[in-house]
Design a protein around this nucleic acid. Structure first.
Lengths: 160, 160
DNA sequence: GGCAACTGTAACTATATTGGTTACAGACGA
DNA sequence: TCGTCTGTAACCAATATAGTTACAGTTGCC
């Protein structure tokens, strides 16, 4: 299969925003945390905004933040926002319709792929961004008592 | 994600062999049913043979057949034989280690991806090739009463 | 032995997807 | 109006899959 990192990056991005609470993050800062280019992040933010998971503001002092509370955003929401296709695909070219297996394998495979997709979705639906932030906590527990904006950004990306 | 059709094709191939029972199928015939090139099929058959799901024989009258009974081959076996990577991937480049989220998101994401992979594997482990053939049956029930080899191949790929 | 029919595999090309980069128009706060 | 952002187009690079030709090696059969 062709797994991309889009889902992982999207979860990372929304986790950053949950971590930052209501403060808008600039794509440049998010990109530094994710370790990629700011345009890659902005492209993804557009998709996340279309799915109403984040809201962005242009202009000076702009940036992006969560559109709703972290506990109201599941990983399934994120998955559906950034991964268009299912886990598996059918044949590139349709099978031979003159073969009794070829002509019937499609529906059967679709049943199976649906079962797989459903299982994946069931797992993702039960994990929220708040859960992800919580699982992060044990390692950084008292590390970043959020205070003022400037302080926060230094903490978020201390590498600069 | 990057879903390929390798899994779908592999299931198709093994289903053909279960359908053909113990008679060895030529890559050329399998390719016609799948509607692709025979070399693509032979490459896949090599992977399936490495995983001990099929056995192939060279030379005249050669071909490939299942290495064990259809009810002893699960879709998980096939998935593991032809799909190297998991459903999702982590970041292409590791996140920023100076960011409290970036440095901790990896293990959390790995937990999630493991849960997803496990869910997928649980579904696939419960479906055998025999099940797939059975699900095929309703559409072709009495269609191909297997008799002699020549007759069988005509039925398998009637398009030629 | 020699031929014909297979598999296994290398080498190459084509195509698609993802990710990275530069560039720039438009929005917006101060 | 100026500087700082987002949104987006237009590329390029890297990678994975798939398709194709070609051919060496194996095997059954005459």
């Amino acid at each position: 299969m062709s797994t991309s990192s889009r889902f992982a990056v999207a979860v990372h991005v929304l986790t950053l925003m949950a971590w930052a609470e209501d403060e808008p993050l600039k794509s440049e800062h998010v990109a530094e945390s994710v370790n990629t280019n700011a345009v890659v992040i902005r492209r993804m933010l557009c998709e996340l905004a279309e799915s109403k998971l984040v809201v962005s503001q242009s202009g000076a002092m702009g940036g992006s933040k969560l559109a709703r509370e972290p506990e109201q955003i599941t990983l399934l929401d994120i998955y559906q926002a950034v991964e268009s296709r299912g886990v598996f695909s059918l044949h590139r070219h349709p099978p031979n319709r003159h073969c009794p297996v070829g002509v019937n394998i499609g529906p059967v495979l679709n049943q199976v792929l649906d079962e797989v997709d459903t299982a994946v979705e069931r797992v993702l639906a039960n994990i929220t961004i708040k859960d992800v932030v919580s699982r992060l906590q044990p390692c950084v527990s008292t590390a970043a008592p959020k205070r003022k904006q400037v302080r926060k950004e230094q903490v978020l990306v201390a590498g600069n």
